[in-house]
């Protein structure tokens, strides 16, 4: 039984070198299931029951998507709107997701430097991801720091391999439940974990 559910949303996956590398590197991993939303729901008609059953079966969920205009692609938002129903995911009787872990895994064209108060985007990634964090909080889930691959427009092949390995290590740590709350509180991005930072080619 897989433990991690990767909800993947990318409207032009066929053109995304970075995401192809990331997704391919984890899709065969034991304990991980990659759920390709744009392939499954090309018509945007989400099977809510099926999605809810998938959620129930997995203790860890990853929203994996490129950051488009400081948010997720529309099908991911549609997934959130449709699947996280009142009195199921939230509300007085909605507690089935309580205690699950959830996080964003994102790719951004802009580099880490532009995502800060001094940069051209003015805010940090974590600020832009607040709606996701609050969604998780409302559903009683633990929201983990995001894993991010940034500056994808300039990324070299070497850097991409590095990023791929980091993603794999992060997922392994999640699978083995080796992340302490203390570790997580220390980092802005999951990429800042010492185990990930050590990865050098």
């Amino acid at each position: 039984m897989s433990k991690i559910l990767v909800l993947f949303a990318h409207p032009t996956y066929e053109h995304s070198r970075v995401n192809q590398a990331l997704i391919e590197s984890i899709s065969k991993k034991k304990g991980v299931i990659v759920h390709d939303l744009y392939e499954k729901y090309a018509d945007f008609n989400i099977d809510v029951k099926y999605e809810q059953e998938l959620l129930l079966k997995h203790p860890i969920v990853i929203w994996h998507h490129p950051l488009y205009w400081y948010s997720c692609p529309p099908l991911m938002k549609q997934w959130i709107d449709m699947v996280l129903e009142y009195n199921w995911a939230y509300g007085p009787n909605g507690n089935v997701l309580k205690g699950k872990k959830i996080m964003n895994a994102i790719t951004t064209g802009g580099s880490r430097e532009v995502y800060c108060t001094e940069g051209s985007n003015n805010y940090t990634i974590n600020t832009f991801l607040k709606p996701f964090e609050q969604t998780a909080t409302l559903c009683g889930m633990d929201y983990l720091p995001p894993f991010s691959v940034m500056g994808t427009n300039l990324i070299t092949d070497e850097e991409l391999i590095e990023a791929t390995q980091q993603y794999n290590v992060a997922i392994d740590l999640l699978l083995q439940e080796q992340l302490s709350d203390n570790d997580l509180e220390q980092c802005e991005y999951l990429n800042d974990l010492p185990e990930l930072k050590d990865i050098e080619l």
Binding site: P11, T12, H15, S16, R17, V18, P66, Y68, T108, G109, G110, S111, V114, G119, S120, N121, G151, T152, N153, L154
Partner: peptide, 19 residues
């Protein structure tokens, strides 16, 4: 029709989000 987020074009321009 999928011209949005054309990463190839942005890569060509080395667009990093800096204005």
């Amino acid at each position: 029709t999928n011209h949005h987020w054309n990463s190839e074009l942005m890569r060509k321009d080395s667009y990093t989000g800096e204005s």
